[in-house]
Structures are given as structure tokens and as C-alpha cells.
Amino acid sequence: MGAGIALVGSVSALQPVSVCNEQLSSRVDTNDAWIRSRTGIAARRIAGPGETLTSLATAAAQAALEQAGWDAEDLDLILLATSSPDDLFGTAPRVQGAIGARQAAAFDLTAACSGFLFALITAGQYIRGGTVGRALVIGADQLSRWIDWDDRSTCVLFGDGAAAVAVEACEEPRNGLLGFKMHSDGRRADCLSLRQRDDHVPLLEGHSSQKGGFETIHMNGQEVYKFAVREVPAVLQELLNSTGTTAEQLDWLLLHQANQRILDAVADRFAIPHERVLSNLARYGNTSAATIPLMLDEAVRDGRVRPGDLIASSGFGAGLSWGAALLRWGGPGGARAPAAPG
């Protein structure tokens, strides 16, 4: 095969339990109007008993194989973008074992809300290098386990979910990863964090050992908002310039689903009509690494995104990290896509 990367399948996995704003208002001092006006969120899915990140990611992975028409043993790579693994040593291998992908290497990639896009770009480099022919890129997070449900500034924002995209090597005319940019700034890491607890237990006389465990999510909402509305348009412009693309050529803008005001502000910056901005934030909230593939899958299933459509996508969040990619949707069966613009 050539040096292209075709996006040939997308699926999602969601918990059945949806928690609406009115339900949260019975626990914390908030209300539906306050949450909607500041975030655009109306509800979010929350994992229940017996539902784990592994089970969600496995369901998405299995469905992605079926949609792409692949056998599990033909899979070369599984990348799981997550910041909330069931096992700190890695959850991707558990997914690999569950779906029977015995020939596939599997590992986690942690980049919070930028994770899926960073993982997709990483898979693309393995494919371009010729070492991988077929890969599953999964975005999955279960942040409900790390939320302070008495903190109204964060508990209203996050939800759980998983989605996967199947990608494979292809000839250049079908290439679906037309360009990308990635950035990080650890100097601002404390703006959005999930830190190790500073707990110690006695070990030997005069010595102690740090006890494992994490705090709940901490976020400086104002700083994260200012970061997003400044850096996301900048990285998208950087991407468009590097690929010789204009905003008018885009069929869709697909951003990390964090806040509707951010989505609207970025669209306005590029004079992109709001109806061309993909958003399901109202129903699912911020599912971290899962937001972009969840939204992509929904738009593919309802027919908005069609084979050949040109999509500018950007992920941004903790780290702080942010990036963008220019994508061409291929569709199940490897539908032929046009050549890159410019």
C-alpha cells in the first residue's frame, strides 16, 4: 500500500444512564439555566455498577472491527487514548485480549482531551512508516470516578463514553490524514489537573512511602476558557496554512466538545456557519478523549458526514495540550476520497 491513512470506520459506546441538569441541581447549588448558559450542556452519561472503561472501550473496538469488515487477527495496533484507565499499567492490552487481536500491539496514550487526536496522529505515523497496516484508535474516558460531585464548577461538565475509529494504509488518493499540528505547554499544567495525592505511610524508622491515589479534578475554568479561545483558532490557522486550505473549503469543523461558547467563538473566528460546526455537547457533556470520535460517529451515522468530506478537527485541554488535524472521511469499505486541497 501507499503512504496514505484511510479512515474507514467509526463507532461509539455509551452508558444507558443519562443524568440531566435538573437531577444535579438536587445535589449542588445550580440549575439547568445556569449550566446551559455557561456551557451548553443539558445532560451527561455516567457509568454505573459493572461498567468499566475496559468494557466501554472493548464494545467500541469490537463494533469498529465489524463495521470495517476486519478480522481481529488482522489488526496490527490498538491505541487507547484515555486519562482514566482501569489499570495504571495499561488498559489497551485488556481490550486487545478481549477482542482476540492476538497480533496487535496495544498501549495507552495519555493526553487528556487532546488524547484522541494525538493518538490518531500517532497511528498515522506508524502507518506511514510501513510498520502498521491496520489500527484501531479508541478515545475513552470515565471521569465520573474522579469528580467531586459537590463542586458545581466541575461536576456539571464531565461525562463518560468511548468511541473508536478504524484506520488503514491506503494509496495516497484515499489519504484521510492530510496534515496535523501538536503543541504542549506544561507551564500551565495546574490550570487543569488530576493530581497524585500527597499521602505518605510509615515504612521504616525515619522513612515513609508515598501512598497511591489521586485527588479529584481541579480546573481553573476562566484560564482554560481563555486558553482555548486563543490557542484553538491559532492552531487551526496554522494547520490551514500548512495544507494550503481555506476555511471555505471545509465541510465540517469538529472540535473537542468542552463548551459551546468555545465552539461558537472558533467558528466565528473563521466565519464558518454554526450549522457546519459539529456538536453533541448538550447530550453528553465533556467526555475528554472520547468527544471527537463520539461526535464523528454520530455525524457519520446520521448522514451529515459523507465519504470525501473535509473536516478540520482540534483537541485541547489538560497538559496543557492542543492540536489540530485536517481529515478526509473515507467511510466503511474504504470509499475513495478526493486528493488533498491545494
Rank of each mutant, 00 (worst) to 15 (best):
H200A: 07
G9S: 15
L178M: 11
V8I: 15
L254F: 08
V165Q: 05
I46W: 10
V201K: 00
G285I: 01
D141T: 11
E51K: 01
T82V: 13
L136W: 09
L120D: 03
H183A: 09
F270R: 05
A267F: 05
R36N: 08
G100I: 05
R328A: 11
S314G: 03
L136I: 01
I121L: 05
I78M: 07
L194G: 04
I138K: 00
Q103W: 06
L254V: 02
P307V: 05
A258I: 04
F89Q: 13
L79T: 01
P85R: 07
L294V: 04
V201E: 14
V19A: 01
D150E: 15
E168T: 14
G2H: 15
R304S: 10
R102G: 13
G97D: 13
C170F: 11
A64I: 02
I272V: 12
L109S: 01
H218W: 10
A3E: 14
I127N: 00
A282T: 01
P93S: 09
F158N: 11
L327F: 00
G303V: 03
T243P: 07
D160R: 03
R188W: 10
A72Q: 11
L239F: 14
R328G: 07
R44F: 03
E298S: 13
P93Y: 04
D74M: 08
R174L: 12
R44M: 10
I292Y: 00
E238R: 15
A189W: 09
G9V: 11
L79A: 07
Q196Y: 12
Q67I: 13
D199Y: 06
P293W: 07
A59R: 09
D309N: 15
A318M: 01
A123R: 04
V300E: 06
G129M: 00
L194V: 14
R145P: 02
I127M: 04
P332S: 10
A43V: 01
R152C: 10
L194E: 04
W329S: 08
S55N: 08
H274T: 09
A271K: 12
